[in-house]
Design a protein around this nucleic acid. Sequence first.
DNA 1: GCTACCTATGCAACCAGTTGCACTGCACCT
DNA 2: AGGTGCAGTGCAACTGGTTGCATAGGTAGC
Lengths: 180, 180
Amino acid sequence: MALEHAILVSLTERAGSGYELARRFDRSIGYFWPATHQQIYRVLRRMDEAGWVKHTEIGQDGRPDKKVYRVAAAGRAELSRWLAEPEDPAVLRDGLGVKLRGASLGSVELVLKEIERHRAEHATRLEVYRGIQKRDFPKPSGLRGRELHQYLVLRGGVRAEESFVAWCDEVIDALRKDNK
Amino acid sequence: MALEHAILVSLTERAGSGYELARRFDRSIGYFWPATHQQIYRVLRRMDEAGWVKHTEIGQDGRPDKKVYRVAAAGRAELSRWLAEPEDPAVLRDGLGVKLRGASLGSVELVLKEIERHRAEHATRLEVYRGIQKRDFPKPSGLRGRELHQYLVLRGGVRAEESFVAWCDEVIDALRKDNK
DNA sequence: GCTACCTATGCAACCAGTTGCACTGCACCT
DNA sequence: AGGTGCAGTGCAACTGGTTGCATAGGTAGC
């Protein structure tokens, strides 16, 4: 598992509350490791009990109190232990493939519409990534170290979405021709 | 959820036992919707109780008896209901991205090795897909209907692996240059 | 004044996927 | 004779992720 580790990476970059982490996951890390606030709160509590992180309660006026977490020594140790450990390659799991495979058992028309819808969503995500790329890494050739790594992860997202959109186009085209 | 539906699609193509389904998932559908035999047995029993599939016990000599499942009317109904229903776009979830993002907190050397290892595994998977493509769809331009759909799903796998391997190459190259 | 949304944390129940194990019997290799 | 691997089904326990709900005060728009 790696939600623990994703949180540790994020908290090492900058301390934050569960809520803030959930926002960060929505915007960046979560593109590669999605997580809801429920999951994040639960894991934070677990890691707190295990001594991987420590929290400081911060009273705010006008807003609810918050707990700001920062990585403890044990957390840093666990993180480098995990970084050195081999990771199982991720598997593809997309219901759209199953739907396409079964298209002829239902309405090919509808499956085609569905693929067009997915194409649009992935194209939007791609635009978001490209926006981040332009804004945060306008000159990638000069990047080094941590920033380079962040950039390369983003590149992974861009490539995945590009390839998905291209596949959708291939499918849409082929299904339309088959229908004629 | 869609394991039910993945199984229904597979069983509609050809009736089979839980064991046979598990083999099929290992070889084809499972590239896009992985499942272990445990999961398959459990879901088959559930679908049997719900009347979506029916089984016939087949005694074999020299081998254990098996239950051959085939899709019942209720299963066909459920399948076309699901096919017409919108599906949430799949999310990317790859620990390797988290590792790369956190690389500078551990050993960049080791993360680089890890990425090379993943590259090799995905390249192997890509070769498997290309082999299937060559063997089963030597002339894709003439394909229609169900065969076309199967081919297009395979194309999705090929594209995903190609793009992953290309990303690995980009990362390996960039990390090596950064290290110099 | 009402609705809606944001910040902030959390419980409880549920569902899906993973892992480890158990049993049988044949075939093949060493 | 013993180990490995294949065919075949299955239980039990666990882990991780999802969904629905609760609470509470502040701000912004109609």
